[in-house]
Simulated assay, not measured.
Amino acid sequence: MHVEEWLQAIPAIWIYVIVGGVIGVESLGIPLPGEVVLVSAALLSAQHVVSPLWVGVCASAGAIVGDSIGYAIGRRGGQPLFDRLARRFPKHFGPAHIAKAQQTFDRWGMWAVFFGRFIALLRILAGPLAGALHMPYWRFLVANVLGGIAWAGGTTAVIYYLGVAADRWLKGFSWVALVVALLFGLGTTLLIKRRAGRVAATGAGPADQRSMSVTSSE
């Protein structure tokens, strides 16, 4: 079952809880499809199943709280934490992934936390890695809050308005598509009849000529 179909089958309040919970757990450093859940919930809000405001609020809260807990875990666990995660999730926490994320943090600092929200790898690693590298918490918190709101709120708003616009366009397009289909069907029918008439005339010509030659010989 598609994520959007699964979300549509449960009450609205639980959709908010799932959105905040999945994004929060993902921000702890556990690879979950947080972005997929957020986009699916935002699409449901465009269909008036849930409120886009509460989707954005719950997603932002989950991102901020999850990243903060991830920061605390990373600060306490340090490098041994990433070694254990690499053994359990080699596709997400392998040495190459950690090295790339550390280079990004060394170069961009708190901006890595902010923009990391928009990048799949850093979205999982930002909190724990910032804690393990002992980034000052106040700097992390500012970047975490701003990044969480920008990513969750921005994504919800963009998907919501795109969904509303697409729904209106498709409703108008349905009539256009019907007219085009009818015209195409009529045109195809006339073309087939015309070609069939030509084939029949072409086939009758030689037959008539043969009939005429037989008659004349007689």
Rank of each mutant, 00 (worst) to 15 (best):
R195G: 04
N144I: 00
R139N: 05
R107K: 15
A42I: 08
V176I: 15
S45A: 15
G172L: 10
G78A: 07
I23R: 00
A200N: 09
F118Q: 03
H48G: 07
E35L: 11
L81Q: 02
L32C: 06
S68V: 00
L146F: 13
P136S: 03
I98K: 02
G127V: 00
V145Y: 04
G56T: 07
F184E: 09
R107S: 11
V142M: 10
G116K: 03
R139L: 09
L85K: 04
E5L: 12
V180D: 06
L81H: 02
D167Q: 14
G77F: 06
D106A: 15
Y71A: 00
I98H: 05
Q8H: 08
L129S: 03
R76H: 12
T215H: 13
G127I: 00
P31W: 07
V3Q: 10
I98Q: 09
A152H: 03
P52M: 10
R84N: 11
D67A: 01
I98C: 04
G187Y: 12
R88P: 05
E4W: 06
E5N: 11
A120W: 04
I10S: 08
H134L: 11
A12R: 08
F114N: 02
A126Q: 03
G185D: 10
I18C: 08
Q47K: 14
I69C: 02
R87Y: 09
P206N: 11
V158Q: 08
L53R: 08
A9G: 14
D67H: 00
G62W: 00
A207S: 11
T189I: 13
K171G: 08
A86V: 06
A63N: 01
V65N: 00
I149E: 00
A196K: 15
S174N: 12
T188F: 14
I119T: 06
G131H: 01
